[in-house]
Design a binder for these strands. Structure first.
Length: 280
DNA sequence: ATTAATGTTCAGAA
DNA sequence: TTTCTGAACATTAA
C-alpha cells in the first residue's frame, strides 16, 4: 500500500510533531507475531538513539527518514502494511516500534505499526545512508523525473513498461497501484515494450506521473478495500475514489464509456487497464 | 480445509 | 549483464 503518496502523507503528518523533539527512549512493542527486521543490533540502536534530537523528517522514495542530531538516520520501510502513527493504531496487536519523546506535547510518542510485518527499521550512519539510499538501490524520485529522464531510462531496457515502472533503481516511488493509474491516463498499454515508447510518450508519462502522484498526495493517499492504509492520525485516505482502473476489473472504463476494465498479471502482480484507451 | 491474493523488497538463480 | 522467481509475513476471500 504505501507508495510515494502514502509515504509522503506519513512524513507530512508526523513532521510537525517529531522534528525538534528529543528521544527519551525507543522500545520494541510486545506483540505475539514474528518480529520485524531491525538493523543493526537493538542494543546499538538504543544506545545511539537515546537523548538524540530528531532534526529532520523526510521521504526518500517509499521510505521514511528520521535524521538525528548525531548524523545517524532512522530509515523505516513500510513495505506492504507499515504505518507511522502519532496515535490510535488500527489495532494494538501490530504495533512494532515506539519512540517516546522528552517534554510533553500533543503527542508523546511516535509508533511504527505493521500488520504483515514485512516492514523494516534501520539506523544508518551518514555513509551507510548515502549507500543504501543512493543510485545503487534507488533511482531518482518519480516527482523529479522529466520526459528526457524517462526516455533515457526506458530506452535501456527490453521489459514491459509497467514492470519497468516498478523498478525502484530506475525510478523510485511508483508502486503497483499508481503504475496502473498513470498508464491509463497516458493511454499506454501496460505490456508495451519500453524500447518502443516514443520521446513524446515519455513526456506524457512524466507529466501524468507528477499529476497522479500529486493529486494522490492532496487526497492523503489511497485506502483500499482491506482498509489497512491510514494517515498518521489513523484516518483513511481519499484517492481510492479517484481510481480509474486499479481494482476495477470488469467495471466500465469512465474514459471511453463502457468497455470493461481488464486485469492481467505481470511479474506476479495485478495490472489493471482499459483495452480500448491503452494502446501497445 | 486448502489455496490464492494483497500495496514491497531483494537475494539468488536463470 | 539483465531479468525473473520466490520468500519474508499476516489476514481475508474464494
Amino acid at each position: 500500500m504505501p507508495e510515494l503518496p502514502e509515504v509522503e502523507t506519513m512524513i507530512r503528518g508526523i513532521r510537525p510533531h517529531v522534528e525538534g523533539r528529543t528521544i527519551e527512549r525507543i522500545s520494541k512493542c510486545r506483540c505475539s507475531c514474528k518480529p520485524i527486521t531491525i538493523t543493526p543490533s537493538w542494543s546499538s540502536i538504543t544506545r545511539r538513539a537515546r537523548g538524540r534530537t530528531i532534526i529532520e523528517v523526510r521521504r526518500r522514495a517509499k521510505r521514511v527518514v528520521l535524521e538525528l542530531d548525531s548524523g545517524d538516520c532512522f530509515v523505516i520501510e513500510p513495505r506492504m502494511t507499515g504505518l507511522m502513527l502519532l496515535s490510535d493504531p488500527p489495532d494494538p496487536g501490530h504495533l512494532r516500534i515506539q519512540w517516546d519523546f522528552q517534554s510533553p506535547c500533543n503527542y508523546k510518542s511516535l509508533w511504527f505499526w505493521d500488520r504483515r510485518g514485512l516492514g523494516t527499521l534501520s539506523l544508518f550512519t551518514p555513509d551507510e545512508l548515502s549507500h543504501r539510499l543512493g543510485p545503487k538501490f534507488l533511482g531518482p524520485d518519480a516527482l523529479e523525473v522529466d520526459g528526457a529522464g524517462w526516455h533515457a531510462m526506458l530506452k535501456k531496457t527490453q521489459r514491459e513498461i509497467k514492470v519497468a515502472m516498478l523498478d525502484q533503481k530506475m525510478i523510485a516511488g511508483i508502486g503497483n497501484l499508481y503504475a496502473s493509474e498513470i498508464l491509463h491516463r497516458v493511454g499506454i498499454h501496460p505490456q508495451k515494450k519500453c524500447s518502443r515508447v516514443t520521446k513524446k510518450q515519455c513526456g506524457l508519462i512524466a507529466e501524468h506521473t507528477v499529476a497522479v502522484l500529486s493529486e494522490a498526495i492532496r487526497y492523503e493517499g489511497s485506502t483500499l478495500s482491506d482498509g489497512t492504509y491510514r494517515n498518521s492520525l489513523n484516518k483513511e485516505g481519499g484517492y481510492q475514489n479517484a481510481h480509474l482502473v486499479y481494482d476495477r476489473e470488469e467495471q466500465p472504463c469512465d474514459r471511453c464509456g463502457d468497455v470493461p476494465i481488464k486485469r492481467i498479471v505481470q511479474g506476479q502482480r495485478s495490472t489493471f487497464f482499459c483495452p480500448i484507451c491503452q494502446r501497445r
